[in-house]
């Protein structure tokens, strides 16, 4: 899923302090699971904003809603009959959701309420870690199911580098060396011979080097 973390409330206040009718819009997708922008976080942010405006002597409306997904137009369209009642929207969705709302409601200022971080998973309650950088050309088949692009700090294709020590990365001892993990996993699978064939330089065209990307699945198109 997309992992995000809530923006500090003072940064959010700074964005919204000049508005009088605010809608805080959460997303029931990824940001609900990573506890950054679901209905629960909407309630917290909206309540904090109302307290702020009340103590500032302001009569501001801060309403709450959460959409099934903000990255899908049928759901963003559910704001169509409501959005005119507001002069700003705080979206707690990931950067995709914020941009979809901004595209769909062109005359409405949309502000981000979270910092979108990476694609990852839930390691344990309250801890999420990165697993994929969306490079557009998956090589997990050759690396024992462990991604060197996401898990190696240098994104090396033929690691580990000289900075790997006791299975830890030189960038930070809290980071496991991605290539050490790959080695251990391939050993487990009896596939260490994969190390005998160097991997060719990666074509980064499918990553961000090719500019903003799109995916077309012809069979799914109408």
């Amino acid at each position: 899923m997309i992992i995000a973390e809530p923006k500090p409330i003072d940064e959010i206040i700074d964005s919204l302090k000049d508005f009088n009718r605010i809608l805080v819009a959460g997303c029931d997708g990824c940001v609900t699971v990573c506890e950054a922008g679901g209905m629960k976080e909407v309630e917290v942010v909206a309540s904090a904003l109302r307290i702020y405006f009340k103590q500032a002597g302001r009569a501001v409306t801060v309403d709450e809603i959460s959409l099934t997904r903000q990255c899908d137009r049928p759901y963003t369209a559910q704001l169509a009959d409501k959005i005119d009642q507001y002069d700003a929207v705080l979206s707690l969705a990931c950067g995709v959701g914020v941009q979809f709302l901004a595209e769909d409601y062109k005359n409405k200022p949309i502000f981000p309420g979270v910092n979108t971080c990476f694609m990852g998973g839930t390691e344990e309650k309250g801890l999420w870690t990165e697993r994929c950088q969306g490079c557009g050309k998956c090589i997990l088949a050759n690396t024992g199911g462990i991604c060197p692009i996401a898990r190696c700090s240098k994104r090396m294709l033929n690691g580990p580098c000289g900075g790997s020590s006791d299975g830890r990365c030189e960038v930070n001892k809290d980071i496991a060396c991605g290539w050490h993990l790959i080695y251990e996993r391939l050993k487990e699978l009896g596939q260490l011979d994969r190390f005998e064939t160097p991997t060719d330089p990666k074509d980064w065209n499918t990553s961000r080097d090719g500019g903003p990307r799109k995916v077309i699945k012809e069979v799914s198109r109408l």
Partner: peptide, 19 residues
């Protein structure tokens, strides 16, 4: 909040219902 005279308020909406 008591002395400020502010009256910020809000409701919880669902996609299917109006304000």
């Amino acid at each position: 909040l008591r002395k400020s005279g502010g009256s910020a308020k809000g409701v919880k909406l669902t996609p299917g219902t109006t304000k």
